[in-house]
C-alpha cells in the first residue's frame, strides 16, 4: 500500500493539522471531500462520515469542521503547486493528478469557449481520491489470461469503482517485471495508471514499461506502436469509436492488448453496437468481469471464445 502523505499534504493547513492531530489513520482514508460551507467528508475505513473539530472521524454534523472558501483556495494552491495556469488541460478534464498518483476531482463554474470546456473557475468542491496499488492482486487471474506462457489480449469489464484500473496496473507491473520480461506500452490518458508526476510514474509499473502520459488513447496506441515497439499495449476505459478502430489496428500488428471498459456483464457488452464488432472479430481472447457489490475487485466471471464460454 502506498503512503498517503502526499494526499494529506495538499490539504489546507487547518484541515491537515486536524487530521494529523487526531486518531485518524491516513492509510484507512479512501476519499476526502471538501465543499465550501459544508463539513469535511471522509470515506474512512469504507464508511462515510465527517472530520470532527477534535480531529476524529464521526457522524455528528454539528461537531464537524466546516470548510471555508480560504481553505479551499489554499488546498487548490497546494494541489496545483501554486500554479493553476499550468494545469489548464487537466482542469478541462475536471481533475488533477498529484504526487503519489492521488487524484483530485474539481467542481465549480465551467467556462466554455466555442462550445468547448475552457477551464473551471470559482472552484467550490474538491474530491481527493487516495490512490492505492495492491501489489500482486493480478496473480490469481494471470493463469486465465495466458496461453502457452504468453499473454492473450484481455478486456476487463467493471462498473465504476470495481477495481479495473488497479487490476490493470498490477497486470502491467507483472508483465513488465524482470520475471515477466514483456515490453509494455501504456497510454495513460487520464494519468490514472502510472500517475506520472513531472514525467516520472508514481506507481510501480515494472521495469520495461513505457508510458505516454495524458495522451488521447487512439492516437497514443498508434504512436506507441510506431515509436516503442511494445509487445503489449495497455489502455484504461476504452469506449469511443476511435479507440476501437485503433485497437483493431494494434491487434493486426500482432501486439497484445490489455484494456478496461465500464460495464457489469458480458451480456451488456454484447448489446453495445460499438463493441459487437470488436467481440466478433475476436480481438480480445479473454473477458474479465469484475464486481464490487461485496468487495472491490471481486471476479464475477472470466470468458473466452468471443465471450461465449465461461472459464
Amino acid at each position: 500500500m502506498r503512503e498517503k502523505h502526499a494526499a494529506i499534504g495538499v490539504l489546507a493547513g487547518t484541515i491537515r493539522k486536524l487530521i494529523e492531530s487526531g486518531e485518524i489513520q491516513s492509510d484507512k482514508i479512501d476519499e476526502i471531500r471538501l465543499r465550501i460551507g459544508q463539513p469535511v467528508w471522509l470515506l474512512y475505513d469504507r464508511k462515510g462520515g465527517y472530520l470532527l473539530k477534535n480531529g476524529t472521524f464521526g457522524k455528528e454534523r454539528k461537531k464537524a469542521h466546516i470548510v471555508t472558501a480560504l481553505e479551499l483556495r489554499e488546498t487548490m494552491e497546494y494541489v496545483s503547486d501554486y500554479s493553476m495556469y499550468a494545469y489548464e488541460n487537466q482542469l478541462k478534464q475536471g481533475y488533477i493528478t498529484i504526487q503519489g498518483g492521488h487524484r483530485v476531482g474539481i467542481a465549480g463554474k465551467v467556462v466554455l469557449e466555442n462550445g468547448k470546456i475552457k477551464t473551471i473557475t470559482e472552484i467550490g468542491m474538491l474530491n481527493i481520491r487516495f490512490a492505492r496499488a495492491y501489489i500482486g492482486c493480478s496473480k490469481k487471474v494471470m493463469p486465465y489470461i495466458t496461453e502457452q506462457n504468453d499473454i492473450v489480449s484481455t478486456l476487463i469489464i467493471s462498473p465504476p469503482g470495481g477495481g479495473k484500473t488497479t487490476l490493470l496496473r498490477d497486470l502491467i507491473r507483472e508483465l513488465a517485471s524482470e520475471k515477466g520480461g514483456k515490453t509494455v506500452g501504456v497510454v495513460d490518458e487520464r494519468s490514472e495508471i502510472a500517475a506520472c508526476y513531472l514525467g516520472i510514474p508514481q506507481n510501480d509499473l515494472g521495469v520495461t514499461t513505457d508510458v505516454l502520459d495524458a495522451c488521447p488513447k487512439a492516437e497514443g496506441m498508434l504512436m506507441l506502436l510506431r515509436s516503442m515497439a511494445p509487445e503489449v499495449i495497455a489502455v484504461d476505459e476504452i469506449g469511443t469509436k476511435e479507440d476501437l478502430q485503433a485497437i483493431c489496428r494494434v491487434a493486426n500488428c500482432g501486439c497484445k492488448i490489455l484494456a478496461t471498459i465500464h460495464g457489469s456483464s458480458m451480456e451488456e457488452m454484447k448489446e453495445k453496437t460499438i463493441l459487437k464488432e470488436l467481440i466478433n472479430k475476436n480481438i480480445f481472447q479473454r473477458f474479465l468481469v469484475l464486481d464490487n457489490r461485496f468487495h472491490v475487485g471481486t471476479i464475477k466471471g472470466i470468458y473466452k471464445e468471443k465471450g461465449l464460454v465461461r472459464i
Binding site: R73, M76, E77, S80, Y82, S83, M84, Y85, A86, E88, T119, T121
Partner: peptide
C-alpha cells in the same frame, strides 16, 4: 494574485 488564476489572467 500570482498562481491562482488561469494562464490568460496570469
Amino acid at each position: 494574485n500570482l498562481g491562482y488564476l488561469d494562464r490568460e489572467m496570469q
